[in-house]
Each structure stands twice: as structure tokens, then as C-alpha cells.
Design a binder for these strands. Sequence first.
DNA 1: CTGTTAGCGCCTTCAC
DNA 2: GTGAAGGCGCTAACAG
Lengths: 354, 354
Amino acid sequence: MATLKDVAKLAGVAPITVSRVINDPQSVKERTRLKVEQAIKQINYMPNSIARSLVTNRTNTIGVLLSNIANPYFSDFILGVETKARELGKNVFICNGMNYESAMSNINLLMEKRVDGMILTSFEFDSIGLQEKLLRELERLNANEKHSVQFVLVDPSPKQTLLTSIQIDNYMAATVAMDHLHELGHKAIAHLSLNRDADVWIDRFKAYKDAQGRINIPLNTEHIALIDKEDVRLAEEATYRLLLTTPRPTAIFAANDTLAVGALQAAHRTRLRIPEDISIIGIDGNDIAKHSYPRMTTVVHPRYRLGELSAELLIDLINGKEDTASLLIKCTLQVNESTGPLLMQTEGINEQHD
Amino acid sequence: MATLKDVAKLAGVAPITVSRVINDPQSVKERTRLKVEQAIKQINYMPNSIARSLVTNRTNTIGVLLSNIANPYFSDFILGVETKARELGKNVFICNGMNYESAMSNINLLMEKRVDGMILTSFEFDSIGLQEKLLRELERLNANEKHSVQFVLVDPSPKQTLLTSIQIDNYMAATVAMDHLHELGHKAIAHLSLNRDADVWIDRFKAYKDAQGRINIPLNTEHIALIDKEDVRLAEEATYRLLLTTPRPTAIFAANDTLAVGALQAAHRTRLRIPEDISIIGIDGNDIAKHSYPRMTTVVHPRYRLGELSAELLIDLINGKEDTASLLIKCTLQVNESTGPLLMQTEGINEQHD
DNA sequence: CTGTTAGCGCCTTCAC
DNA sequence: GTGAAGGCGCTAACAG
């Protein structure tokens, strides 16, 4: 593969002149420039970014570490990151980090590749301890004097960190979902969520509890179902248990769309009509919700925008802007077909117990 | 950030010795090694892969270019690639290339980053001409004497290429789907597909036509619906048109699961029972199919395995194995709930026209 | 087993 | 405007 030298020889100039044509064309006389440009084309020269990075100590590359690339939640997010990053002249590399080990290994990989910064999305490792450990590690890398790496954390848990972060307002999103159900007249509302100690689930659960409290419904533990994995089948099975309780819930607030789809499956298979017999609402606004039957009512996260914002924030940090504040992102209700008003007969059942 | 030299100085050895401790520990006496290892830990040294790559002309990194990261089809594929690549000591970078321009730009990016090889998945640009252009370009890059880059193409279209490729047997997959419907007694089978000239769609359509021919059903153009984009809504709308034809099809063979889900939506909304009133089958085995109600019968692509194979093949090529043959991948039928036997009453309607 | 020398391809610095 | 020298951090090749 051709090098600067080759081009220089062909064009009859010094290597540095070729370098200038590439990096700062105006600094070279037009005649020389044209000569060089032609030589570049002729031997199909392509700059070696490896060599360049070694000198400049910059790779113009950012890394994105996802907790799980197979999670549809992240597709739009990445598109947003990529689009904005490309717009700002940065390349993007994507890595998977499904557990503490693979996350750490990929962060090290990205460090070795000397990315200028990283975006890390909501990690949920087995223990909150591991998550804290990771956070401290990142803070250490960030504080490193030479070649300090910049980080942007998306919805980290625990929230307390010195690093720049973008928080999703999970409590608000869940409150919006609950308010919607309340406005439709539902009182016996079940909550389907994950048995994890990450803030995202804790906040959504707290919003559920508080919302029920506001309409004077005490917490009914039979109406809480927590599963171990974000999995449609597990959510379906948990929902069967919810549907066997008395009074039967008239609505289910699922902590995200994947779980909501599981609830939908269970409702279908118990021959319940949706939303006449039971309303179901999720959070996220994934494709999985858009493609369900009936279409899922959900609280939409602006994931693409979130990606754009993350990229912008990170690149600002890389460019030395100090005043880049952490952000809090809001979500919006999207009413579709899976929620409807509480009907009389079910209301009757419900009121027996009120 | 600490360098080899720093470590060497601290440990009281030559830089090359530190290098050896990292790359070939056995070649160093244990006492020296321990001394060096301690120094590495002490100043938190991390190799600079940029510098290393500049010397070795190897990055130990492969690139994966997807036509669309948001397509659920690719999630499992990437996981397979990553797992196998890591196992074989390679890192993976993922890029998006949704059209000719972004594909080319990302290929150039990966070239500048000097990846050792790339895996490219089914590109579908607007015209077959652009696809050929890309193929020729890749062949040129591969043929380059110095720093020749290795490529593995997954299901390329057109199929004719000098490069190593993994072909999915699309004709066979579609035949399996059609045979399943025929065995259930269906004759009036509609085909829902994309209006694109990539081989994947052409092969599946051809299999449909041939299968119908084998049971002596002439091609009914009213039972063919082609849409412009892989989109559930468009598929749904096209299906409404299919359902208005006389005789109404008793089964729909969708060219992939996304389209099949659209067909499902249309059937639900026309109050048709699935599979009693209409059977629907897809191809791919995506999550979208697994999570539909009723669960979609489909022809499953071994996507994870496909990813592993691609990675293996590419790394073999990088390591200079010459005899790595191109592969043809087979799919397997997965019978779920969306297909069932042709019932009498519909059979009657059907036979009026036979 | 360990060290010396040289150079990967490019850019920074300082001359001309 | 252009060029020559030197070095980024690492390893290959050759010595000792």
C-alpha cells in the first residue's frame, strides 16, 4: 500500500508537502498541490491513520459500549450517535459489554486503540457493587493526566459519579404511564418488572408505588411480578400468575416494552380482550411494541435524539469544553391500542375489594 | 500514559525485554519477568496498540459492515462474529452501511484503520449496478499486493465474485416454507415480498413460483404483493389488498418475518382467525416472529452460527489459509402457531377456481 | 536470555 | 512556500 513517501517521490516533492496537501491544502501553492493530488490518485494513496494517530495522539474515533447489541432499544440510539459523530468528523466503533468482565475487556480494548472518548450505556451487572467498581475504574481512567479519556454515561446506575452523564427520567416516565392508566379509571394495576437493583427499575417501581398511593391504593404484593431476565417468555409466565389473583388487575404497567409484549401474550392466551378486559402499557417505544397486536401504548424514549446528544456531549468534552452539563431526558406518552377505559363489569369486581 | 520505556527504566531492563514479557513471556527468565510485571502494574502500563500496529502491520481487528444495524436480523449474527473472533484473538468493530455511499465511506474508514479483514453482510442498494460496483471495488482492494485486505461476503448479490462468500440457500428456505403450506393442503397461496432486485428476494420468489408450479397452480399475479421497503406497516397495507382478491388466499408466504408480521396485523384487523382462516409463514426466525401472536411459523436461519462461521472463515483467510471454500448455509423449518391445515369451507372457495 | 540498532508512516519543529 | 531532521511507541533482525 502506497505511503506518503511514494506520493512525494512521484510528485517530485518532499513527504511533508504531501502531508500538507492532505491536512492543510491552503498552505501549499496551487501548482504544487495539483501535482500532489494527481500523484495521490495515480497510486491510489490512502493515509495510514495508524501512523497519524501515533504522532498526533488522537484517533478521531469514539467508542460506544452497549450492554447488549441484541437489545432493540439500542438500534436507534446507535444510529443517532453515528449520524452526529460523523457530522462532527468522528468515527464510531461499537462494542458489546454484557457483563462486568466483557465490559472491562472491551473498555481496555478501546483504551488500547486509543479512542478519544467513549459512550457507555446502562450497564446492569449482577451486583450493584460491580457497577460501582466499574464507575470508579472509569473515573480513574478519566483522571489520568496524559491521554485522559473522556466518558459520557447514559443512564448510569448508581447515579452518583464525577463523570458526565445523561440521565433518563425514569421516575417521570413511569409516572406518565401510571397517570394514563388512572385517567382511564384503572385502580387495580399490576406491575411487571425486573428483579434487579439498577436505578432504572427501582425508579419505575417507586413511581408505580407513589402513583398508587396518590389514589389511596395500598401496595398489593400479589400485583407485583418481578422476573430475572428481560425475556418475553418469562414475562408471559409471570403475567399468568398476575391474572390469577383476586381481584384480577384491570391493567398492567410493564417496566418496559419487552415485558409488556410478554404480558400481551399471556392476555391473548387467557382469551382476554385487550384493552376491553385488560389494559397493558410499557415504556421505551421499541419496534417490538409498534409491531404487537394490538399496538402497544407506551412511553417513548427519544432514543435517536439521545444518541445524538450523547455524541455531541462527548465530542464537546474531547474538544476541551468544560461546561458541558449532565442532562436529564424526558419521555412522552404514546397512546396506542393496548389501553382503554375501565369497563363497568370489571369495575364491579374491582369495587368488591375497595 | 506510561510507555514501554518507562516500564523498562523502572524495571532496569531494555525496552525490548518489556516487549517480550508482553508478547512472549516464556522467552524471558522468570526473575526478570516478575520484575517487569511488577513495574507494569506499578505505573499502570497499557500497550499502545497504535504503535504496535504500525510496526507489525497488523491490527488484530476485523470490521463488520452491516446494511443496517437496526435490523434485528443482525443482532445474533454479530454476537456470533464477536464470540468467535474474541476466541481467536481478534477484536471486532461494527459499522453501518445503509447505502452505497455510507458503505463505501465506512469501508474506507476501516481501510484507513487498517483492519486485517472485513465481513460484509447483504447489501441492498437501490440498483444492482451499485452493488456490482461495490463488489469490483472490494476485489480491487483484496488484490492489492501490499497490505491486501481479506473479505468475507455474507449472501452477496450478485453472487458472482472472486471473493470468499457465505451464501444462504434462499431458494431452499423458500421451498421448505412452501412445502410446509402444501402439506397442510393450501393451494391459494399469496406471496408478499420486496420490490428489489437482490438475489435474496428473487430466489425466494422463484422458489414460490416453482413450488406452485409443482402442484399445477399457475401464477396468479393478484396473489403477489411487492412493497418497496422492509416495513411492517407497508406489509400490512399490501396484505389488505391480497385479502380482497377472489379467491382469497388461504395462506401467505412472506419473504421474511418482518413482512409476515405485517401480514399478521392485517389478518387480525380483518377479524380473520390465524391459522383457522389464514395461515402465515415467514423466513428468518427473528425475535419479531417469536414475539408475535400467534407465534409465527418460520424458516430459521442459523444467524449466530452464520456469524461464527463468517468470523472463522475471515480469520483463516487472514492467517493465509488458501483453501477456505465458500459455504452454502441451509435453514430449518420451525412450525409455530401461525400455520395450520386448510379447513373445509375455505377449501370450497378455493376449489371453485381450480 | 538480553540488548542494540533501525525503522514502521506520519507530523512537529525549525530552518531556508 | 517548501524542506530536513527528529521522534511518536513499538518490534524485527541481528548481536552478544
